[in-house]
Design a protein around this nucleic acid. Structure first.
Length: 502
RNA sequence: GACAGCGUAGCUCAGCCGGUAGAGCAACGGUCUUUUAAGCCGUGGGUCCUGGGUUCGAAUCCCAGCGCUGUCACCA
């Protein structure tokens, strides 16, 4: 046992005194909660005498004792409500121990209590529960940060230290109710997308997290080992190649909310484990998929906020269809005034230099174009925008463009200056796919740590035949940041990755 | 990975021109006999992140380490 603070010692002493009084500090019986704080506050009508038989439970977050009468606040999952406790009401007989000892001295802020009583309005006009019965439901042995809001709504002593908030998210959520709201919105975002995709008849599936070969994206993986099989396994970086195998197997549409793992840098946009949704639909192309993305995310905005506009930082982002569409070349021309569509590698390098973009010497034409786009365009695209038609070198799993040589049928959706979605007309020509994998192997030999592996089983599946298919990935964490107006990925992940404590 | 900043009581912070610690809330005690009070009075509480160094003396200055944050780099 680590060193206990004064307050922790007091709480343990209080716990023992409660036990000595014959009161269970952690009673096993259910407590028959029948409403919530917010429900009462929203629905109480003093003249209609409703909410006269309420049973609520939660943490006691404040406690103002005035002799034989006290006011306390209970916080449940919906918010806080004041309760009024009078000594002779909760102790109708001679024995006043429950009030004088237990309530006044042995209960601490943060303890879970349950009350039964009726709702009324105090002289000062606050909706309050007049308590007839009070029980302890769970004793708290550690003091919570005390955050207070005064009459003017000013928050005092806010619990703001990011390290403590992320390491002890449970505390963060208890004292910062807006944090719970963020995660409730995130959950509704998933529900909204499931509803949309299920209504179209697509199947939610699960594919392996532990993979003997990793693929579907350009990234460095986490490596692990299976003891019984005595084999190296990778944590997936994407689930693309497995979902396409399911399309080969005959499903029309499959999707998966997939936790992926990439062994790379961390930032306010990157956590080592993150969530994507990937969707594959047979007999469709990327044009069709763009319409789906617009429609689905417009629905998400409406489901979360009741409208298509979402406030994100200083911007109002409008998810209403249709979104702007630029080809990558058009976007670069739009933001730099330079048409690079006909340039060779040397000309592209010169252009990049002219735009003050530093390039590694060994990168190829496609990567240079992507660098120019990333430096000069992406951050300026605040409203949802589709960027289409990417260089083939960067997209080894996408189908070659139907009319323009050197490009593939791919789009990314950019929003608030960041990619939130990536999609293609999927490459289903097994011979072309094998050549693309071989190009990746060459890149790997040249030292590209993110180059893809050649997946023979995936090629075998394609050789049996995959229908024309459109595939989509959406970064759920990035989308959640936008939909909840959060500045950091750590604010939309319950337990973001951190270094070990101590 | 690079650069910058931060780490003092349960929480939020002050002190940092070197003389071994303060405030508010929380805790404890008192006040408090019936719809308010972050009330009022009083008391306690700190390996000042860790380890070295300089110094008569270090929370304060120097070095190293650990952790966090921000920006950049890689990337979703």
């Amino acid at each position: 046992m680590a060193h206990l603070s004064e307050q922790e010692i007091v709480r343990r002493q209080n716990l023992q005194k409660i036990i000595d009084l014959g009161i269970k500090p952690y009673p096993p019986e259910l407590f028959p909660v029948n409403t919530h704080a917010a429900t009462i506050k929203a629905g109480f009508q003093p003249d209609q005498k409703n909410f006269q038989d309420v049973v609520i439970a939660g943490r006691m977050m404040s406690n103002r004792v005035m002799g034989k009468a006290s006011f306390a606040e209970i916080q449940d999952s919906s918010g806080r409500i004041q309760v009024y406790i009078s000594r002779d009401e909760i102790c109708p007989g001679e024995d006043k121990t429950l009030y004088d000892q237990v309530f006044k001295h042995l209960l601490d802020l943060g303890d879970f209590i349950g009350v039964k009583g009726y709702t009324f309005l105090t002289k000062t006009g606050e909706i309050t529960i007049h308590v007839k019965e009070l029980v302890l439901l769970s004793k708290s042995l550690r003091p919570l940060p005390v955050v207070k809001v005064d009459a003017d709504g000013v928050v005092h002593d806010a619990f703001t230290d990011p390290e403590q908030r992320y390491r002890q998210r449970y505390v963060d959520m208890v004292v910062n109710p807006d944090v719970r709201r963020v995660f409730e919105l995130r959950s509704r975002m998933y529900t909204s997308m499931r509803e949309y995709l299920n209504a179209k008849g697509y199947l939610e599936v699960e594919t392996p997290v532990l993979q003997p070969l990793y693929g579907g994206a350009a990234a460095r993986p986490f490596v692990t080992h299976h003891n019984t099989l005595d084999m190296k396994l990778y944590l997936r970086i994407a689930n693309e190649l497995y979902l396409k195998r399911l399309i080969v197997g005959g499903f029309d549409g499959v999707y998966e909310f997939s936790k992926d793992f990439r062994n790379e840098g961390m930032s306010r946009f990157h956590n080592p484990e993150f969530t994507q949704i990937e969707l594959y639909v047979a007999y469709k192309d990327y044009e069709w998929m763009m319409s789906l993305v617009e429609e689905m995310l417009e629905k998400v905005a409406i489901d979360l906020h009741g409208k298509t506009e979402v406030q994100v930082g200083e911007h109002v982002i409008e998810f209403k269809r249709p979104w702007k569409r630029y080809t990558m070349f058009e976007a670069i021309e739009h933001f730099t005034g330079i048409d690079i569509s006909q340039m060779d590698e040397a000309q592209l390098r010169a252009t990049a230099r002219q735009l003050h973009i530093h390039l590694d010497a060994n990168i190829g034409k496609g990567k240079i174009i992507d660098e120019i786009f990333g430096e000069k365009c992406e951050a300026q695209l605040i409203q949802p925008t589709f960027i289409t038609d990417y260089p083939v070198e960067m997209s080894p799993l996408a189908k070659k463009h139907r009319t323009v040589p050197g490009l593939v049928e791919r789009f990314e959706a950019i929003c608030n200056g960041k990619e939130i979605s990536n999609a293609f007309s999927e490459l289903n020509d097994p011979i072309d796919q094998r050549e693309r994998f071989e190009d990746q192997l060459d890149l790997g030999k040249r030292g590209d740590e993110e180059a893809m592996m050649l997946d023979e089983d995936f090629l075998r599946a394609l050789e049996y035949g995959m229908p024309p298919t459109s595939g989509l990935g959406i970064g759920m964490d990035r989308l959640a940041m936008i939909m909840t107006n959060s500045n950091s990925i750590q604010d939309v992940i319950f337990f973001p990755q951190m270094k070990a404590e101590k």
